[in-house]
Nucleic acid binder design. Structure first.
Lengths: 121, 121
DNA sequence: CGCCAATATATCGGAATACGATATATCTGT
DNA sequence: ACAGATATATCGTATTCCGATATATTGGCG
């Protein structure tokens, strides 16, 4: 019912924002939300399994960064950030996804009734 | 990997062909395949659970037809066909899906890199 | 007349996945 | 000192895809 965001879409948008520059997970989610006017949300339960899949299949490479602030407490390790970078393979996949997406859109359009202002609900 | 046809899409295309005229399951699948140039396939494993969901949620109504041929054998019951007809609720849902789909397309486009002839793969 | 492909409906079960909830820890502004 | 944002991650339930399988009927063709 709730317009589930499918794998293809979440993969596409993640790869898409990573095509511009390396980002860490949380930043990816923020970027996607911002660019979609808050309409596409990569929640943690979607985002992190997705990134794990992307990494495992070699579409992105990842490196850890640890940031320590001035006010860091004695025992603290600092904040961990995992940076993701699009690989060559990922770039190809993105292009592929983009084409598939456009193809899919053309396909679906053949089934769409003429645009009409939705009446009631 | 295999470009899963998601619920939204299969529901949309099924409702879409039913908007024109009542059809039985097998005919729906054929119609969808034909209109998509054989690219969208509603296989039995997808089609019948989908129709059951549509019926249960009141988007379509269904009636059985039994066709007996001239050459029918003694014991045979004749071929059973279950005709599906779009309900008013289904018509609303179709309009809703169509708008959501267009909205989704606009959203995704913001993430698509410029169209490029996919190199290798 | 007998065979087979096409027609027609349906279920099963494994695998994938969406996503809310939960957990843990750190940083920043006030 | 505290709240709220930042940041990563997993769990469990529900959903769903879809290949395979099952069953039965019909039409065409040699």
């Amino acid at each position: 019912m709730t317009t589930r965001i499918d794998t293809t879409t979440s993969e596409l948008v993640a790869l898409s924002v990573l095509a511009e520059e390396p980002l860490y997970g949380y930043a990816i989610a923020k970027r996607v939300a911002a660019r979609s006017d808050e309409r596409l949300r990569l929640t943690p339960g979607v985002l992190y399994p997705l990134l794990k899949r992307l990494e495992k299949s070699g579409l992105v490479t990842a490196t850890w960064e640890t940031v320590r602030s001035d006010r860091a407490e004695e025992g603290s390790e600092g904040r961990r950030r995992k940076w993701y970078r699009l690989s060559a393979k990922g770039r190809k996949r993105l292009a592929h996804h983009a084409n598939a997406q456009r193809e899919h859109q053309r396909l679906i359009e053949a089934f769409l009734p003429p645009e009409e202002p939705e009446a009631g609900a």
